[in-house]
Nucleic acid binder design. Sequence first.
DNA 1: GTGTCACGCCAAAGCGCTTTGGATGCGCAT
DNA 2: ATGCGCATCCAAAGCGCTTTGGCGTGACAC
Lengths: 341, 341
Amino acid sequence: MNLKELAAHLGLSQTTVSRALNGYPEVSETTRQRVSHAAEQHNYRPNTRAKSLATGRAMAVGHVIPTSTRHEMVNPIFGDFISGAGETYKQHGYDMLLSMVEDGDQPRVYRELKAKGTVDGLIVHAPETSDPRIGLLSDLEIPFVVHGRASDEARPYAWLDVNNTSAFARATELLLDLGHRRIALLNGLESMDFARRRRAGFERALSEAGLAPEPALLRSAEMTETYGYSSAKEMLAMDHPPTAFLVSSLIIALGVRRAAEEQGLVLGRDVSLITHDDDLSYLRNGGDVPVFTATRSSVRDAGRLSAQMLIDQIGAPASALPTRLLEAPLIHGRSTGPCPT
Amino acid sequence: MNLKELAAHLGLSQTTVSRALNGYPEVSETTRQRVSHAAEQHNYRPNTRAKSLATGRAMAVGHVIPTSTRHEMVNPIFGDFISGAGETYKQHGYDMLLSMVEDGDQPRVYRELKAKGTVDGLIVHAPETSDPRIGLLSDLEIPFVVHGRASDEARPYAWLDVNNTSAFARATELLLDLGHRRIALLNGLESMDFARRRRAGFERALSEAGLAPEPALLRSAEMTETYGYSSAKEMLAMDHPPTAFLVSSLIIALGVRRAAEEQGLVLGRDVSLITHDDDLSYLRNGGDVPVFTATRSSVRDAGRLSAQMLIDQIGAPASALPTRLLEAPLIHGRSTGPCPT
DNA sequence: GTGTCACGCCAAAGCGCTTTGGATGCGCAT
DNA sequence: ATGCGCATCCAAAGCGCTTTGGCGTGACAC
């Protein structure tokens, strides 16, 4: 059933039917009723492609997922972010388009999305400290929101980020307050902007306490369980092992816990651990009582909010570029305790 | 730059330009060269919406992600599956559309996708044993491929699945061969078809060995680390604790390992563990030497293949409904060993 | 009665592409 | 010269929708 048929069926013009369904005032209330009732009955939905061709709006937003060949890992965060964003899109009638793109292809793909007109806007995932995508998208004049930031980008752009610096500073301060002095940082890849910022927060808190970070206790890698395990194992075997760990993801934390328990160390007593917790639906940090002390920020919420920002921007392209900094509160769990003497 | 402009620029008709770019024979080789060169230079891409309006093909496939409110977990498998599917789509020029849909809304959403014509086909995720979506989609006559199966569905449909039954039977047999008699099964939610089949495989192997499953050693729940931990902890505290665990996901396995190590038990010596391993990119089962003995099947490959099946089917709708059963080989890791006496 | 206006509706153009059904011109055989 | 066929190209219709501009009608004021 398409508009033409529906109109014919009702003995009305396409114009009137279209207007009736889209809430224009030039149509009497009685006909509107009649039309929407018939539409309902025949399960009529305007064809999306025809509609967007006519209106010039795709009613779709794109998510470009980088799948670099060097670290061909799908960001575990991704599912939850998407799920949050999807909720928002649904409310506003937007579709969500996904493209898996290899790093080198990024410019080409963005240009294509623009030229083909498949999307009205984009979400940029996993920005690096210096990320060429942002400049490119600005040039292309297509609305976009970055999940995270790119510190080296000079031009303004829309972003939503967690305050990684302050979160990790606060976490570090807690450990310092508990008397810890040898604190290890197991960070994500430091080409990623968020990792850079977390390290900055960590170092700031240390230096404010008059301490310097110790290179042997700093690591940066893809955030896997094995990474957490082997790093912690090695560090705990050092002459002066760290008494506390600050790590960038719950998955790393699982590895650290394993290494600790393997040595018979009890978390929160013999060794302390704070992790960042993205509040992933399939990797909960315990139930009511969190297992790990953590800086927590729901990535699902981030998805919801980013999507909203993007939709707002698509609606009012001229308006100022929105930015949003979410705080990640420190959640006290059972993995932290005073430094053993 | 659109077709009209490009044609004007070249002093040709839209027809000729369109034909030149789409490889039709009615155009001389010289003009074809000229056209494609100009298209390249002006970075021309046909507008997707206009194209699909004209051709009637959306060049997009939809993935409908169920987000039931009862278990509002985003399937951790999802990212990798999508990433595999995305590769295939890219090769064939298809876009990938995602919809997060609450369970109750499923029928409505499918009807809408059909009526709005946004997609040419669908992938159905996470089928339950009795899943109404399949019948609905068959009725709607829209091509689709199910990732998994729905045992109760009588009508034929296209699917790709892992041979869960045989995988779990073989895993059980290995444990039996190693002398284990008290084997616990920590399964996923048994409304899910895959979980049902795994249990069937487990029970088949037991009964072939003349054993009956012991209810106290069977559990079924959302597959989280905590679930694995607490279940294992409780079971290991029993009078006659299990000597081996068979679990449905690596995440559960992590929990079991924690419970075991907490009790000072060494995996592969004091207690054995086999897990199903979806080979997720962010949750690797060790490196070259797998940590856990596992039935392994790459969910990313499953995505790749499902997508291919769907595209084939969209291309030849009349052809027989394809089905594909992937075997999940048993990978020997360090988590299994002879039953301690 | 006539003019004015708001109201409710419609015909037709247009979005950017594909595709049908010719048109045109040229070489070649007749 | 004439006719035919082939190779190239084009005009125009159509995909399903929105939107512009306009058209008839009845109410109301004068």
